[in-house]
Design a protein around this nucleic acid. Sequence first.
RNA 1: GCCGCUAUCGUCUAGGGGUCAGGACGGAUGGUUCUCAGCCAUCAAACCGGGGUUCGAAUCCCCGUAGCGGUACCA
Length: 486
Amino acid sequence: MSNTLSPNDQVRVRMAPSPTGYLHIGGARTALFNWLFAKHHNGKFILRIDDTDTARSTDESMHEIYDALKWLSINWDEHYVQSERRNVYDRYVKQLLESGNAYHCYCTPEELEEIRAQARANKQTRSYDRRCRNLTPEDVDRFVAEGRKPTVRIKMPDIPIHVNDLILGSRNIDPATLEDEVIVRSNGMPNYNLTSIIDDAEMQITHVIRGTEHLNNTPKQIAIANALDLKLPQFAHIPLVLDDTGRKLSKRHHGDLVAVNRYREQGYLPEAMLNFVVRLGWSYDDKQEIFSVDELIEKFDLARVGKSGSVFDIKKLEWLNSHYINQLDVSARTDAVIPFWKQEGLVDSTTNRDWLENIVEAVGERLTTFQDIVPQTRYFFTDDFEYESKAVKKWWGGSDEKKQKTREILTNLGQILEKIPTFDVETIESAIWKYTDENDIKRVAAMQALRIALTGTSFGPSLFDIVLLLGQDEVFKRIQRAITCL
RNA sequence: GCCGCUAUCGUCUAGGGGUCAGGACGGAUGGUUCUCAGCCAUCAAACCGGGGUUCGAAUCCCCGUAGCGGUACCA
């Protein structure tokens, strides 16, 4: 008989990814909930790589998972890899076989498929008919002679299994719905439902916090634990993270779009990702949206986790990310942005740091991701840009007459800026206003015409900042070029 | 097919027998400004349906419906 946890045991939780791909948003949330729960209770967070599916597990994806977790600062206190623990599982399997709680199954995949099809046609609840439970020695000899390699199945009990879930509540599972699960493959490799619950016990996990896709595995694992007389953890099944059509987020269907590492590469901040992901299914009250990690550790509580799935909304992530970016000072923002400039070949180690900081300062609160720096500031580094046709049409003019007027304005502006006494924002500003106001030219019209000449687009930071950062010579050059292009 | 879970604005959610059903993202409008972003102000937007219980139900109960998850020698 399993006994339950005593309340003053140290909390030990685990995240148990299978290394069959990158860590996605849903996995990150599972990791975070576990980690926060551990931190909140002063417990341990354990990372366990569930790689018993040797065919699909890769080293590469294992390292991707490590990287993603490290980026999020979800650090682990202990680390295990299941494929290195074969002897542990083998020992328990032996025990199960000897106690009569498990048996060898010689059914071939083809036979099983047939049995399943039959059960389905008959609208049966259970698909496997447990035929190998009562094999005669002669049957076994025959199968062995045929060269069949058996799997091992667990015998499910015929009494209801009680499951208490910290989020979903308690219920009793009808034994008639329980399958004699395969716990060891014919190649000798143990399966998830076996290894998971064994390790949870061996590693003294107190709380299993995982996605609801595992809800149906829980009674199976409890049955295995009971047969082995293992101590049971508490279970908490958290609702799934969904895409905008309401389906579970998965690597297969959503590709890179949901990969945590992808967001890092695009210039998202881990704080934003954490803050975003924690609010998927969890809330503190009706006021607070922004939480620091320390606050989360203090406030996180499974009791406030909801029961229904949450849709992954990138707009909200973007909002949080710009919030956290704007929280950073100019120097930190510059540090964060430099790799993206370098990646585009816009900046190298010789580029003047102060000038770069001034650009970042000018860009101000316009970044949603650090990656945005590239399209928003490219024109500072190169004059190799196109004039946006929509902007040109609106501000430079569609008719020859308007174009002529624009040429005139740009020419005048060029002359003014060329011989400006002191090249600073205040002087530039008053000189331009003086010109527009005295000649009865709309400020917008002059400024937008100049903006397009200097940047190719009709929007961006304060034009005075741009003029200053580009420098007198470059500004004059670009104005001359614009005039000839008009 | 079978087993299970879930159900408040488009989205994340608060509330949980008597509330103008609150907040946030997103959207719309206006203001500020050389543009965009931002900021400020304003607005639209929800209790899945039907029965009960009750003086009163979004809230409790039942029945539907819908969506999702599982149904592997994956995890």
